[in-house]
Design a protein around this nucleic acid. Sequence first.
DNA 1: GCCGTTTTCGGCCCGACTGTTTTCAGTCG
Length: 573
Amino acid sequence: MAVTNAEIAAIFNRIADLLEIQDENPFRVRAYRNAAHMVQGLSRSLAEMVEQGETLEALPTIGKDLAAKIREIAATGSLRKLKQLQTMVSPGLVDLLKVPGLGPRRLRTLRDYLNIQNIEELEKAARQGLLRQLPGFGVKTEQNILRELSELQQRTRRFLWAEVEEIAEQLLTYLRQLPGVKRVEMAGSYRRRRETVGDLDILVSTSRNAPVMDAFVSFASVERVISKGTTRSTVVLRTGLQVDLRMVPQVSFGAAWHYFTGSKAHNIAVRVMGVQRGLKVNEYGIFDKQDKRIAGRTEKEIYAQMGLQWMEPELREQRGELEAAAQGRLPKLITENDLRGDLHCHTTTSDGQDSLEAMAKAAQQMGHDYLAITEHSQHLRVARGLSADTLLAHCDAIDALNEKLKGIRLLKGVEVDILEDGSLDMPDYVLQRLDICLGAIHSAFGLSEQKQTARVIRAMDNPRFNVLAHPSARLIDKRSACRLDMEQIMDAALARGCCLELNSQPRRLDLNDVHCRMAKERGLKVVISTDAHSADQLGYLRYGVAQARRGWLEKDDVLNSRRLAALLKALQR
DNA sequence: GCCGTTTTCGGCCCGACTGTTTTCAGTCG
């Protein structure tokens, strides 16, 4: 089976961990991490590039050595270099890197003085008070390690973007009303709209010495203060979410906002561009040889110094956005306003919580031109899926309601189960009556890549099939993506006039950003839908739009940016 | 281990905070 890019990235990251523990040249370690990061964001399969004899060395961060390693992984599924390193470092030691406060130096001290090889041994030694005697350690470090160990699971957890949205807004409101505060903004992965965030980064600038830090650490939801300084403080909220706050002078706000928005890889690339121009770039601004600040008040100034257009935070992942900006070819990212309707939702007739009428009314209030009603099919018992007859009756109800509605059109649809053999869980004579047919995998998630891919393509062979809903079937942090050859599926969809959905449910966000980009590059249209199970959830569209933006999608890449007539035409295969 | 408008060798982003030191190393972002 073809090796995935994610597997290759995982191998490179593991090698970087092992090299780091061994006190290897830190730049060599970084080379592996850079390569892993690049591979993760690549919208083409490396295994396939190897198979077609393409030169991997043309990829950024990949030189002769790493190209050979990728070829070895593609051919054998593993890497001798990794196996060899694994014999030199005990596997438990790598886990210790996950303990906040423990880096490679302290790890080696632990191993060399106390022969500590894993988390259990570390905890035992800390309880016995052995760590405080080690060079560079003390009583406080020992206590910190013990506390981190007890909170390890919670602290390493990432949160869904949507889970932290409310507290992020509360923090902004709280900080903005403090006296002397000029400006407060979110930065970090939250601003870049990553599907999950590890912490919140907040920037504040004040007009005078306002006691913002004191106010911040006494915010109601704060459970513990990790650090508190004059320019930076870190707290942990009761939910386990870490929040960093930075104070920056207004003259540096743009530089700081850019810097703390990241991504890290994007920042490093920008700093390297600065170095090439003889400039120093940091969170306080851009400085020339005489250490004179020549930019920093706005992000636009920062990019302009590098000869670049300002770019949306969602693009800043070091996936070609700097090159695109240099050429003036940045995408004009889609916005929620570009969408004219929603093509996936449920009502009380299957497993939704609101009636047909309520859903229609809510969609109309959102300004939608159309809303597709797409109940489950009968194979999905837990969701009270509809039989052929019930769906036909439901169609009658939709037709009747459409007669009464003004300003919005309900589309008759279905979210039909793709059965294990690739057939659809609804007879063709029923599908024929519908405006739109979504197909989805809700069972047999564990098939081999070959079988799963064939299953989906066979489903798309049915000429009534329009949209592959939540294509990978993943649930973030709950269920991994099905093994699918996504490139093959996209090519098949394109050939058959089908689309792929970007499902906006916060735990799905499926397609992911890399897959959106992959679709765009092929000219395959994407549908951004909510899969709403209540009227409130129709608002989830904003999460899907954010993910689409991370995947560089523009208005024309998205099918439901079209008016009703054009949409209906496109649904005729 | 990568990379090149100063380079095929010698660089590789940079600052804040903590804790352990008594001027700085380690870690983090």
